[in-house]
Amino acid sequence: MNVILSIAKTTVGEAIRRRVLLIILLIGVLFLAVAPGLSVLSLRQDFSVLASFTLGVIKLTSAIIAIVLTVYLIPNEIERRTIYTILSKPVLRWQFVIGKYLGAVAALGLMMALMTVTLVAVFAIMGKGASMDVILNLTRAPVMFFIQMSLLAAVAVFFSTFVPPITNFFLSGGVFMIGTIFSPVFDSISSNEKTSGLVKMGAGIIHAIVPNFGMFNIENSVINQGQQIQNPTFFMLKMLLYALLYICACLFLGVIVFDRKEV
């Protein structure tokens, strides 16, 4: 465990110093900070416009950071040969993969926390008449994004055990898009009575296989206040469990592939 934590800690230290990530983060934070200026133009729908825009910025920025961070996570170690000094120590490969992943997620968490703090500050200062309760309710969305991006990072780590970074960037990005879009498509297919049973079954199988990134998108309920959602926290916990299981599947499979990999 110490080994995993050490690797994770080092990964965090490195990730939060990577210039490309910091630039993406900076752009994200900047967008958040100027967002109230954008919606000043819109006299109507102040809160919703500001909330949807800022949450969208957080999600987009986090997704890019998550992918860019993880696709280079292991390839960089190989290229710089740091992996040799580590694997020649009493470190097992699975410890290395898990440690790198946890470090990446922790770094992502730090960056997303910074954006969330900015979000809260923007709403607290710029007001739009939102009470602290409403603002705190808003932070449910970034919490879900974090779980979502952790899953995305796991998918990218899995791919990174056998495809090069640039390919992985598009592969993971593609899976993220498909996973996002397929959830509502499946919802539509399964609730449409005209759809044939065979199509529904096929959609059900795909739904059970692809990572359902779309199901983490709960921001609508916090952007548009007042919707009657029963047990939102329970749903978030369900999705956390879902993400954990999927992450485990990705990482363990990644470990199996990586274990035989010639680095």
């Binding site: 509502p184 919802d187 609730s191 739904h207 919707q227």
Partner: peptide, 19 residues
């Protein structure tokens, strides 16, 4: 778990239902 969580998502969060 995804099958378990789906109905609630469909009810409360899904952007589009039906056709």
């Amino acid at each position: 778990v995804s099958k378990w969580a789906f109905p609630q998502w469909s009810k409360d969060y899904s952007p589009n239902k039906g056709d």
